[in-house]
């Protein structure tokens, strides 16, 4: 990591700690906002957060690795999370899963080489009456069919660039 990047990360973390406070209860909000801005929580970032909150870096690692929506490896600008839970299974998630793998060219748990798209399973998204449900960053799609997949990916591509930062969440 270049010194300039490190410096920016440190500055960002300090600003977040100012905003949320130096209490332990600030840890998860700090990590969430950090990830929103940088797409991942790196080892270096965990060390800085630990220093700022006066806790051991292992504590930060423990929290980061515990939660499904916090991550150390980039899943790209657009994180596709397909609901894997029972009601979405009953409504045909397996075929949507296959088509997502086909159209993105990656398997679940992977990120595209250009760093644009990541694909993972989600536990119940709470759209059980209108499955299969797919969460892309913080936007939810329901009643997804294999044919829809291509259009959803296209929609992401068209927002990538000028508006990409707005689209990046969680």
């Amino acid at each position: 990591m270049l010194v300039g990047q490190q410096q920016r990360l440190q500055d960002d973390i300090r600003a977040l700690v100012e905003r949320f406070g130096r209490k332990r209860s600030a840890l998860i909000p700090v990590l969430q906002e950090l990830q929103n801005a940088h797409t991942t929580i790196s080892d270096f970032a965990m060390q800085v957060v630990a220093d700022e909150l006066s806790i051991h870096p292992a504590e930060v690692y423990g929290v980061t690795s515990f939660y499904a929506f916090l991550r150390q490896e980039s899943r790209g600008r657009f994180v596709f999370r397909l609901c894997g839970t029972i009601s979405c299974e009953l409504s045909g998630k397996s075929r949507v899963a296959r088509q997502l793998e086909n159209d993105l060219g990656i398997r679940f748990g992977e990120t595209t080489a250009d760093g644009r798209f990541g694909l993972e399973w989600a536990s119940c998204l709470g759209m059980c009456d209108q499955g299969p449900a797919l969460l892309v960053n913080d936007r939810v799609y329901t009643g997804v069919t294999p044919e829809h997949v291509h259009a959803i990916i296209d929609e992401c591509k068209s927002t990538f660039g000028a508006h990409a930062r707005e689209a990046v969440h969680s």
Partner: peptide, 25 residues
Amino acid sequence: LHMGAGAYVCGEETALIESLEGHRG
């Protein structure tokens, strides 16, 4: 508001409190 971070177990009230306090759920 306090956002969760993706963990079913945090629906259990003491795990939820752990999470609010910045710990593993």
